[in-house]
Design a protein around this nucleic acid. Structure first.
Length: 726
DNA sequence: TTACGCTTAAACTTG
DNA sequence: TTAAGCGTAA
């Protein structure tokens, strides 16, 4: 058979990976080494050469985006739909299993998925019920504890009591929270994975069935797996079988979310006979950028080891810009982007990558001021918007009256006179006979346990939900959603909202109806089952809303400068990249500095940043930065130093002043601004110092000054620095 | 029940 | 600096 189409344009290691004999295989795929290509070709290889049935293949990714891309590429390559082939996220596949085996999983047929917002709300309520002070036990911390336990496959009973009161208390909270979820049929994200694991672990006949079926398992971004994901894959494959994993231990940057970089490292011991292949040829960046990235990541101790190379030539040095302060940094970056576009470069080929979102503001302002269109990634996603969550809360009450998080959200949105006082009464009543808020509300009304006014308001709310359900029960999903948006009063509330966002929110509510139409057209038959009732459609849609919260909000269209965090940039590439705020405390973040493991993760993030660039990369740091409203001296990140000097070039004077430096007098002569080398000066923050050198003229004339008290020499822009002669 | 001023704290974010 | 959460006042 002619299989050349599968092997076209593959280099030797890629070809080895695609054609590898069946069995456990670990592919260490460096940044830009053709990882997705290898994964999709491997699927084609299994189908075309190994004669695998689509039914026997399971491909797992982390994000919906990656899953969609993989499905699209494989379908395009094979020019046929993929039938029984399962491609999806860990959560999506776990969800599918639980829907199919809800009884064996101990779940109600119409179980609902809690997103992290709902989870926080529920945790809050549990804390209140346990009589715990929210100041002392912040709900997000308790939720984090619960999620961490589930990542680590620990049920409340498995939490080891180390005698510490905090842990004991968290364990109690976890147990109470889980009782609540189980009572009402709510499943959080961690629960999806853990239940799916337990389903197979506790039902040998089911496990045998899926082992028989999924002869071929492929996992993308394996370095990001957490414990339960890892053990789930291990359980399915029985530690052998055809398991094809792809990942890069140097790009594991989600440790704080449960990812265990050890998983990709221990694969070879847990899967006996596993082979390892390395994809090290990079098709993205210049030689200098790769050498810089290699040198930086070499400072990490716990690595499998890998060296990226290219035959594309060295390219430009890594440019380092020491800005005076954050304003200067932003101005420099914007100015360079302007030059890039003047030389014919596209704005969308440029990216400003920062460690934390708070850094974006100044870049935004500066780009706006210069009239450069930009796009910020990191806003809310469609299903996370307040108005959408409002509408979903009503829908969820329609689906399940006992859904307390939704009850709390919907009950006074729009305001209908049911305030904190009344809600407290409902909560107390619900806790007293461990029922849902809905049931408590009904009882209180019947027992006249509420004041006349409150009772009337609550009754109207209950009637509203019942009406929404009854009147649309047999109608198609889009009509039900439309009815909820209108009769709940949400549409009217946002229409009356004179504030800037009201109009957009109404548009979003309308878009929600369109989303349901598209959802129905693309439904996964396994999820919806045969002969679905309208209620099945509603439940499936609600699960969809929780699992696929949509693209992150982004600004204007057209050709834009791209602004995002380093985390969001993973997987993307740009011709020109600015890595900004490379200062100790900011990057690496001060919270990571003390711990070696976390520091290594920060370094991997730096590695991710560098390897985003195809042609040009700038490392920027400021000598001084206004941060949290305080002005503070900053020192360059250790990561700047970890890039060998032979690969870097300091950017000093502006392009404009380059001609000036050519004609400028030697630095021993009197310098502009009245500063001269060896002169002693005083700076408000850095104390006394000695001028080492001066360059440039006018607004951007800069001086290198040694401040012994502030940790050594710094470049300062004379116009900003307010230096006093001593 | 809502509105305003005070206190506090501040990474990264998939499903 | 800013945004969110909370207690007190209207």
């Amino acid at each position: 058979m002619d299989v050349s189409w599968i092997l076209d344009n593959l280099n030797e290691p890629q070809r080895q990976a695609v054609t590898a004999p069946l069995g456990p295989l670990r592919v260490l795929a460096g940044a830009g080494s053709g990882k997705t290509r290898v994964l999709t070709r491997r699927v084609a290889w299994l189908l075309a050469v190994e004669n695998a049935s689509p039914w026997s293949i399971l491909a797992v990714t982390f994000t919906n985006k990656a899953a969609a891309e993989m499905r699209g590429r494989v379908e395009a390559m094979l020019e046929q739909p993929l039938g029984g082939l399962w491609i999806g996220t860990f959560h999506g596949i776990a969800h599918r299993l639980l829907r199919q085996h809800w009884q064996d999983s101990g779940l109600p047929r119409a179980f609902q998925i809690l997103d992290s917002d709902d989870q926080n709300r529920l945790v809050k309520r549990v804390l209140r019920e346990l009589g715990l002070d929210e100041k002392k036990w912040p709900p997000p911390a308790a939720a984090a504890f619960i999620n961490h336990c589930k990542d680590e496959m620990q049920r409340p009973a498995d939490v080891v009591d180390d005698g510490k009161p905090a842990r004991r208390q968290n364990q109690r909270i976890y147990a109470a929270y889980q009782r609540e979820c189980d009572r009402v049929g709510l499943v959080d994200f961690g629960e999806l994975l853990l239940r799916a694991y337990e389903l197979w672990r506790d039902r040998p006949e089911l496990l045998a069935h899926y082992r028989e079926r999924f002869q071929h398992v492929l996992v993308d971004e394996f370095q990001d797996t957490n414990t339960v994901q890892y053990q789930w894959i291990r359980l399915l494959s029985g530690g052998q079988g055809d398991v094809f994993i792809v990942g890069d231990d140097d790009q594991c940057v989600y440790g704080w979310r449960g990812s265990k970089v050890e998983n990709i490292q221990r694969f070879s011991t847990d899967f006996p006979g596993a082979q390892t292949l390395r994809l090290e040829q990079n098709y993205r960046s210049t030689g200098v950028i790769l050498q810089a990235a290699n040198a930086l990541i070499a400072h990490n101790a716990r690595r499998l080891g890998k060296n990226l190379w290219t035959d594309a030539g060295d390219g430009d040095p890594v440019r380092i810009y020491a800005a005076f302060n954050e304003v200067d940094e932003a101005r420099f970056v914007a100015e360079r982007i302007r030059q890039w576009t003047e030389n014919g470069g596209q704005r969308q080929e440029t990216a400003i990558l920062y460690r934390s979102n708070a850094q974006s503001r100044l870049f935004e302002e500066t780009l706006l001021g210069m009239g450069l269109p930009y796009r910020i990634y990191g806003g809310l996603r469609f299903f996370e918007r307040a108005e959408i969550k409002d509408a979903l809360a009503y829908l969820r009450l329609v689906a399940n009256r006992d859904d307390d998080p939704s009850f709390e959200r919907a009950v006074n949105t729009p305001p209908r006179g049911i305030g904190a006082r009344t809600l407290d009464l409902l909560r107390d009543a619900a806790r007293a006979d461990s029922s849902s808020l809905w049931q408590a509300a009904m009882r209180l009304i019947n027992n006249h346990g509420l004041g006349g006014r409150a009772a009337h308001a609550v009754r109207r709310f209950l009637d509203l939900i019942e009406m929404l359900d009854a009147s649309t029960r047999e109608r198609p999903l889009p009509e039900r959603v439309s009815a909820v948006i209108t009769h709940s009063g949400l549409r009217a509330m946002y229409e009356e909202d004179q504030a800037d966002k009201g109009e957009m929110r109404v548009e979003n509510l309308d878009e929600l109806i369109n989303v349901t139409v598209r959802f129905i057209a693309h439904i996964d038959p396994v999820i919806i089952g045969a002969e679905p009732t309208p209620m099945d459609w509603l439940n499936a849609f609600l699960a969809h809303a929780a699992l696929e919260s949509g693209e992150r909000q982004a600004g204007a269209g057209e050709d834009c400068v791209q602004l995002m965090t380093l985390h969001m940039a993973k997987g993307l590439e740009f011709a020109l990249v600015f890595l900004v705020g490379w200062e100790e405390g900011l990057f690496p973040h001060s919270r990571s500095a003390a711990d070696e493991r976390q520091l290594e993760e920060e370094r991997r993030l730096a590695y991710v940043g560098l390897t985003r660039a195809r042609q040009h990369v700038y490392l920027c740091h400021a000598e001084q930065r206004r941060w949290y409203g305080r002005e503070s001296p900053q020192s360059p990140s250790r990561f700047v130093r970890e890039v060998p000097e032979t690969l870097t070039q300091d950017v000093r004077a502006r392009a404009k002043s380059r001609t000036q430096t050519l004609t400028a007098a030697p630095p021993t002569a009197a310098a502009p601004g009245g500063l001269q080398p060896r002169q002693r000066v005083r700076h408000a923050k850095f104390g006394e110092g000695v001028v080492l050198a001066v360059e440039g003229e006018g607004y951007h004339s800069r001086a290198r000054i040694d401040f012994p008290a502030a940790g050594g020499p710094k470049w300062l822009v004379v116009a900003y620095a307010k230096l006093e002669p001593v």
